[in-house]
């Protein structure tokens, strides 16, 4: 018996994917519940107030993870769309398709919490600040991507078109980002989490924030896996129905 090396493309086989994810999903659910609840409870009840922003700093534990996911889900959709166009793996396409609504919700909640946070601190719900502008542009591209799936009937052609739309969207979202950052940096503070910078936020806020970010990421993974599984089963059902052996 030859034992060949496993590589990542094995996940592209829908049966393999289903078998593996069936085992993993419960762990994901448990991890999500643990990290999200500890992060949120720690952040809400056991952190001190910021000396400038008062207690409103506690919004950071939902605002930053949502914004982080909103950007990275679009990046993930870009990568999976490119994989679909090059290697034609259906799981990759389905991953892009099912990630889009989650990313949309995350963008929406990042904008909402940011607006609520902005009122006491900046004195306004919304300003055409570079970061806010680029987030609203991201929201538009999410809407465009979701609408192509909602309005057209599924076929390989639509899959290709949606992948190209995702690639175009990433190019132009990046261009708009540089366009709005070209002149000024705006009201919004810089990234509060980066690996190399010294001016990170304090450790007191940092660890609960990391926990709640991990919680959001696991939540995304759980939802994504369940959505992909549902989509695979739905397509299997459609194929069974269309072969006419009822």
């Amino acid at each position: 018996m030859i034992k060949y090396r496993k590589n990542i493309w094995e996940f592209a086989n829908p049966n393999n994917f289903l078998r593996i994810t069936n085992k993993i999903t419960p762990f994901f659910i448990i991890l999500t519940i643990i990290t999200l609840s500890t992060g949120i409870i720690w952040g809400l009840f056991f952190t001190p107030e910021d000396y400038r922003q008062g207690s409103s700093v506690k919004i950071i534990y939902v605002h930053v993870p949502a914004a982080f996911l909103a950007i990275n889900i679009y990046f993930m959709m870009f990568v999976t769309s490119v994989i679909w166009l090059i290697r034609r793996h259906h799981v990759s396409l389905i991953a892009a398709k099912s990630a889009a609504p989650i990313g949309f919700i995350m963008t929406l909640s990042a904008i909402l919490t940011g607006a609520i946070w902005g009122k006491p601190i900046w004195g306004t719900y919304w300003a055409w600040d570079p970061r806010l502008t680029s987030f609203s542009i991201l929201l538009m591209f999410y809407i465009g991507y979701i609408s192509i799936w909602q309005t057209m009937k599924f076929s390989d052609k639509i899959a290709d078109l949606s992948s190209w739309l995702c690639i175009i969207g990433s190019i132009f979202a990046l261009m708009s980002r540089y366009a709005v950052f070209f002149w000024d940096q705006g009201l919004h503070q810089g990234a509060s989490l980066s690996l190399d910078k010294k001016e990170n936020i304090d450790d007191v806020f940092y660890f609960p924030l990391l926990l709640s970010m991990a919680g959001f990421v696991f939540l995304f993974l759980t939802l994504l896996v369940i959505k992909i599984k549902t989509e695979i089963q739905k397509r299997r059902l459609n194929i069974l129905l269309s072969t006419g052996n009822t």
């Binding site: 542009i137 609408s147 309005t151």
Partner: peptide, 20 residues
């Protein structure tokens, strides 16, 4: 309608630069 949903956001970099 679909076309304007796709295309208007991609005009944005040009419009932002041009307006500035």
């Amino acid at each position: 309608l679909l076309l304007s949903i796709f295309i208007l956001p991609t005009f944005l970099p040009i419009i932002i630069f041009g307006m500035k």
